[in-house]
Design a protein around this nucleic acid. Structure first.
Length: 473
RNA sequence: GGCGGCAUAGCCAAGUGGUAAGGCAGCGGUCUGCAAAACCGCUAUUCCUCGGUUCAAAUCCGAGUGCCGCCUCCA
C-alpha cells in the first residue's frame, strides 16, 4: 500500500485515488522570468519520480504543471532588459522545456499558461465577489480572508497569529493585511486585460485554482510544490477554490524540501544560484538526479562539491554493474556447470524492497540501497569460481541486467549500456595479444589509451572486461 | 514573537518500540605481470544533552542545546 505524507494532516496516509486506477496531479510550475536553477529542478524531478512510480504501479497518471507567464518578476525583468513581458516569458518558457528535457524529466500531460486562462480567472473572481468573499477596491480585487472557512488549515497557522505577526502593510486598499490580491489594477506595465473592475492583470494564486479545476476538476488527488509554497500560495489556492466551489481542492498535499548550497539557501542576493543549464555542463542529468534522490524528498539537501562527487562515485558503481553484465554476456557460452538459483531469489528480494521503499512516501534513498545490494549480489555471483556462463546462468544474468535497467527507468535514469565501439574493441584485442607475449609495457600503454578514450579495462579469469568511465556517464 | 522541521560514523543517508540498511571515503587482505578494477574483511556498544515511560527506545514523553524553513517574492 502506497503511503504519502500529507502536509494537510501532517501524517503519512494510505493513498487512495478518487478514481480507481487513475491519479491526477497538479504541480506548481515555473514563473518564466529566467532560467531555472537546481532547486527548481529538485521539485520537477521529485514530481517526475512520483508520476513514474505511480505509472509503474499501474496507475494512469495525469500531470498538470502550469506556466506562470504574467507576474511582477517578469515585468521587472522586461524593464531591466528594455523589452516586453511577452518576450521575456516566451524566451524562458522555451528554455524551461529545453532544460526539462535535458534533465530527462517526462513532459507533463498539460502545461497550461496563465495568460491563456484570463477569462476563467475573471469568472472565478466574479463568483467570489458574488459570494461576498472578495471585494473590489480602487481597481484591485482582494479576497476577504475573514470569510474563508478554516483559513490556515494547510500551513497550520491561525488568523490571529498571522495578524499579530503581519508586517506593516502599506496597501490601504485592503480591509485586512491578510487579504490577498486576486486582480491587480494595471499600472502601465505593458501587460493587461480588460475586466469588470477595470484594466489589470491577475494576482498570483488564482491561475492555479482555475487551471487545476479546468484540467483535473476539483477535487483531484495530489497537489505538489516546494515547501515554501505552503504559505501563502497553496493556502490561498485552497481559500479561493473551497470558498468559491464548496468543494475540496485536493486530497494529498505533497511538498519537497529545499536544496541548499553549502548550507545556505539559494538566493540572488547571495549570488549562489546554480542554473540547471550551467550545472549540466559539469554533471550529467543522471548524476544530478542520483544526487537528488540520495536523500528523502522532504529533507533539505545540501549541494556541495563533496556531496556531488559522492553521488558521481556511487552512481558509477551502479552503472558499471550494467557494463560488467553486458561485458560478460558478450563472452562465449560454456557448457555445463551448476545453475544459480540464488540470484533469482535475490532479485525477488530486491524488487520487494524497492517497492516497499517507494511505497513508503517515495523513499528513494532506501530504494537505491536495494539496487546497490542487488548489484553486489550480481557481482559476487559472477566472481564466484563455481559460476560459469552456461545458457541458464546467462539467461538469469541477462534478466538481472534488465531488471536493474527497468527500475532505473522508474527512477528516471535513462541508461543505455553502450556497445563497445569497434575502435575500442580493436585496441582491446591488440592489448590481449601483448599480454600473451607478456609485453607489459605495450599492454599498459594500451590500457592507458583505452582509459583516455573513456573505457576502463579489467583483466578477469574470463578475459578482459571493458567498463565505461564515470565522466562520460 | 508565532508556526513547522531537523539533529544517526570522516562525509552523505535509511531506519518511528525489539537490540544500528545502503553509499562515498579510509584501512587490511585475496586475485593479478601490475592495477586506480573486482572480490573478502574491518571501520557508530551507539543514534545532540539530561531526565522519564517500558521487559525492551535512535525510535514514545518532558526539559534543554544547536541548526534550518515559513510568517514578504521564492521550488
Amino acid at each position: 500500500m502506497l503511503k504519502i505524507y500529507n502536509t494537510l494532516t501532517q501524517k503519512k496516509e494510505d493513498f487512495t485515488p478518487l478514481t480507481p486506477g487513475e491519479v491526477k496531479i497538479y504541480n506548481c510550475g515555473p514563473t518564466v522570468y529566467g532560467f531555472f536553477h537546481i532547486g527548481n529542478a529538485r521539485n520537477f524531478i521529485v514530481v517526475d519520480i512520483i508520476r513514474r512510480y505511480l505509472a509503474f504501479k499501474g496507475f494512469k497518471v495525469t500531470l498538470v504543471q502550469n506556466i506562470t507567464d504574467v507576474d511582477d518578476k517578469i515585468i521587472k525583468r522586461a524593464r531591466e532588459e528594455n523589452t516586453t513581458p511577452q518576450v521575456i516569458s516566451e524566451t524562458y518558457t522555451k528554455a524551461y522545456f529545453e532544460d526539462l528535457a535535458a534533465l530527462s524529466v517526462k513532459k507533463p500531460e498539460v502545461n497550461p499558461k496563465a495568460t491563456e486562462h484570463i477569462k476563467e480567472m475573471q469568472e472565478l473572481i466574479s463568483l467570489l465577489i458574488e459570494k461576498e468573499a472578495a471585494y473590489a477596491s480602487e481597481g484591485d480585487v482582494y479576497l476577504d480572508v475573514g470569510k474563508v472557512k478554516d483559513y490556515g488549515k494547510l500551513s497550520h497557522k491561525n488568523i490571529e497569529e498571522l495578524q499579530a505577526g503581519a508586517r506593516i502593510e502599506v496597501n490601504e486598499n485592503k480591509h485586512s493585511p491578510l487579504d490577498f490580491v486576486l486582480w491587480k489594477k494595471d499600472k502601465n506595465e505593458g501587460i493587461f486585460w480588460d475586466s469588470p473592475w477595470g484594466p489589470g492583470r491577475p494576482g498570483w494564486h488564482t491561475e492555479c485554482c482555475v487551471m487545476s479545476g479546468k484540467y483535473l476538476q476539483h477535487p483531484f488527488d495530489i497537489h505538489s510544490g516546494g515547501i515554501d509554497l505552503v504559505f501563502p500560495h497553496h493556502e490561498n489556492e485552497i481559500a479561493q477554490v473551497e470558498t468559491a466551489t464548496g468543494k475540496k481542492l485536493a486530497n494529498y498535499w505533497v511538498h519537497n524540501g529545499h536544496l541548499n548550497i553549502h548550507g545556505e539557501k539559494m538566493s540572488k542576493s547571495l549570488n549562489n544560484f546554480l542554473l540547471v543549464r550551467d550545472i549540466l555542463k559539469q554533471y550529467s542529468a543522471n548524476v544530478l538526479r542520483f544526487f537528488l534522490l540520495s536523500a528523502h524528498y522532504r529533507s533539505p539537501l545540501d549541494f556541495t562539491e563533496e556531496n556531488v562527487a559522492n553521488a558521481v562515485n556511487g552512481f558509477t558503481e551502479l552503472v558499471s554493474t550494467l557494463y560488467r553484465i553486458a561485458g560478460i554476456l558478450e563472452k562465449p557460452l560454456t557448457a555445463g556447470g551448476a545453475s544459480d538459483s540464488n540470484l533469482k531469489e535475490k532479485e525477488k528480494k530486491m524488487e520487494e524492497k524497492f517497492s516497499a521503499s517507494m511505497d513508503d512516501d517515495f523513499n528513494t534513498a532506501a530504494a537505491l540501497a536495494s539496487l546497490f545490494e542487488y548489484a553486489n549480489d550480481i557481482k559476487k555471483t559472477i566472481k564466484n569460481k563455481d559460476w560459469s556462463l552456461n545458457s541458464e546462468n546467462r539467461g538469469t544474468l541477462q534478466t538481472a541486467g534488465e531488471k536493474i535497467t527497468a527500475l532505473f527507468l522508474v527512477l528516471g535514469f535513462e541508461i543505455n549500456v553502450e556497445k563497445v565501439p569497434a575502435e575500442i574493441n580493436a585496441l582491446a584485442s591488440e592489448r590481449e595479444k601483448t599480454r600473451i607475449t607478456k609485453d607489459w609495457v605495450k599492454s599498459d600503454e594500451l590500457r592507458k589509451l583505452l582509459e583516455e578514450k573513456g573505457w576502463a579495462v579489467e583483466d578477469t579469469p574470463k578475459g578482459q572486461l571493458l567498463i565505461k568511465q564515470k565522466y562520460s556517464l
